[in-house]
Design a protein around this nucleic acid. Sequence first.
DNA 1: ATGGTCGGTACCCGA
Length: 265
Amino acid sequence: MRLLTWNINSVRLRLPLLEQLAAQTEADIICLQETKCPDELFPLDALIALGYKHIHLWGQKSYNGQAILSKHPFTLPMTYTRCGQDDCRHISVKFDAFELHNLYIPAGGSGGDPPDPQINPKFQHKLDFVDEMSAWLSDTYTSDTPLIMLGDFNIAPYENDVWSHKQLLKAISHTPPETTRLEAMRTSLNWTDTRAHFIPLDQKSYSWWSYRSPDWTKNNRGRRLDHIWVTPPLTKALQDFNILTDYRSAEKPSDHVPVILDLKI
DNA sequence: ATGGTCGGTACCCGA
């Protein structure tokens, strides 16, 4: 069983790259964020032609938007209101072996925006979103439920999840209020961060490189914003983990690259 | 120390 998560940053613009990715990886399940596409305009036919006959969509015009594309049938397609908004940031489906949650945590601002909830409402929204998710997960599940939660979490929790821990401590995505909240969410259901399971934490690991650098390979100033977590019943099934860094060098790339998890299921 | 680029959409917002 191969799962893949990718912040595609417009599914319509990058459909050819998505088709290439599907052919190359033969993933069973593809989870997308930032599709930026209303459901009625989603390129369903092209994806069904690739074998993804089971699709759960939740899109809107211009912003956010998610999709779960699957070669296997699922039940219980859900969409969730978060922080009082139906802004297409959390969906889930249920497979025989596990329930799958696709998450797109708010960015909380960009560039040099201040990481201060008092003056930056987007940052407040991000902190609230993680708090709400943590509470909801603890209220809804126990750690013996087989769950996979993945997506663009927009937080790089560990020192080697960013190119410079010291220089980015005040940069949104790596500030202590964010990283402590994400760790609290992770430990609440005893989630395994599959990156940490497969790549020692003293090694750098990135999944995103800003568009604002003329050449992302030159100084490799990346961050790991994209995550795949599993609950304890699934840790025995973990087989392999890969970040498809090459996709950052594709023609018209997303600023995020796909992350893959293989499971013995 | 600062500004740098995308995508969607409609001349700006969000990342």
